[in-house]
Amino acid sequence: MRKIKLIWDFRGQAAAKTAEHHEIHLKEFLEMEKHPLKITGFEIINEMYAIAFLVVEEKDMITFRDALKPHRGEVFEN
């Protein structure tokens, strides 16, 4: 089963902290929904740009997309 990485983009001086904090909310959402796949994270791309992400199975992507409204998505490669 293919996995999809849902991504939220954050820009500006507070991007890294915002992405790190957003990941906390993604983890909380997974716990509330009792979702078995728990792959989340954040990456600092540069001092003004960071992302937070959540990985879901392709079959669940639309449900998560509609609930969480990510900015974009891509196929997840381990």
Rank of each mutant, 00 (worst) to 15 (best):
I44R: 15
F53Q: 00
A16K: 15
A50Y: 02
E58T: 02
R11M: 14
M32S: 14
F29D: 06
F29I: 01
I44T: 14
H21P: 05
F53C: 01
T18R: 15
I62Y: 10
K59N: 11
K5D: 06
K59H: 10
E33L: 08
M61V: 09
N46A: 06
D9Q: 14
Y49L: 09
I62M: 11
E33T: 09
M48W: 11
L37S: 00
L6T: 04
P36D: 11
A50E: 05
E47S: 10
H22I: 02
R72C: 08
K34T: 04
P36H: 11
G41H: 10
T18V: 12
M61L: 09
A15I: 10
V56R: 03
K17Y: 08
E74T: 01
T40E: 06
F76M: 00
F42N: 11
E57F: 08
N46P: 06
H25L: 08
P70S: 06
I24A: 11
I45E: 13
T18F: 11
T63I: 09
K38N: 07
H21V: 13
E58R: 05
V75S: 07
I39Q: 01
T18D: 15
K27H: 07
I39T: 04
F53A: 01
E47Y: 07
M48K: 14
M61Q: 13
E20W: 05
W8F: 09
N46Q: 07
L30V: 00
P70Y: 03
R2Q: 12
A14W: 14
I24D: 13
T63A: 11
E58K: 06
K3G: 03
A19C: 00
H21M: 13
P36M: 10
M1K: 13
L6W: 09
L26N: 02
P70N: 03
T63M: 10
F64Y: 08
I7C: 03
F64I: 03
L30Y: 01
Y49M: 08
I44D: 11
Q13H: 15
E57D: 09
M48E: 15
R11K: 15
E33Q: 13
R2L: 09
L26I: 01
E20F: 04
I4Q: 14
I45L: 14
E77Y: 10
I7H: 03
A19E: 01
E20Y: 06
F53T: 01
L30C: 01
I7S: 04
M48R: 13
K69R: 09
K5H: 06
A19W: 00
F53M: 01
K17L: 10
L54F: 03
R65N: 12
D9V: 12
R2I: 05
A67N: 03
E28R: 12
I24T: 13
I45G: 12
E28V: 06
